[in-house]
Computed example of a mutant assay.
Amino acid sequence: MKAFVELKNISKHFKDPHGQGIVKAVDGISFQVKQGELVTLLGPSGCGKTTTLRIIGGFEIQNGGDVLIDDTVVNNLPPNRRPTAMVFQSYALFPHMNVFENVSYGLKIKNLTKSEIKKKVHDILEIVGLSGLENRYPGKLSGGQQQRVALARAIVLEPKLLLLDEPLSNLDAKLREQMRIELKKIQKRVGITSVYVTHDQLEAMTLSDKVVIMKSGKIVQEDTPANIYRFPANKFVASFIGRANFVEATITDVKPQFVKVKLVNGKEVEAIIARNGWKIGEKVQVVVRPESIAITSADKGDLTGTIENSIYTGNMVTFEISSEGTTFEVDMINPYSSALPSTGEKVGLKFDRNSTTVVRVEDTRSEE
Rank of each mutant, 00 (worst) to 15 (best):
H18D: 08
G28C: 03
Q35L: 02
G43H: 02
I56A: 01
V67A: 05
L68G: 00
V87W: 01
F88I: 11
A92Y: 03
A92W: 03
A92N: 03
F94C: 04
P95C: 06
H96S: 07
L107I: 01
K119C: 00
K120R: 15
V121R: 01
D123E: 14
D123W: 00
G129Y: 02
S131P: 03
L133Q: 10
L151G: 03
L157V: 00
E158N: 12
L163S: 07
M179N: 03
K185C: 06
L202Y: 10
G217F: 03
V220A: 04
D223I: 09
A233S: 13
V237C: 06
A238E: 06
G242F: 08
T250W: 03
T250Q: 13
F258A: 06
N265D: 12
N265Q: 13
R275A: 09
N276Q: 15
N276V: 13
W278V: 07
K283A: 13
V284F: 08
V286E: 11
A298S: 12
I307E: 07
G314P: 12
T318F: 10
G325Q: 11
G325F: 08
T327M: 11
T327S: 10
D331L: 00
M332R: 12
N334E: 15
P335Y: 02
L340I: 14
S342I: 13
T343I: 15
L349I: 08
L349V: 02
D352S: 12
T356Y: 10
V361N: 11
T364Y: 14
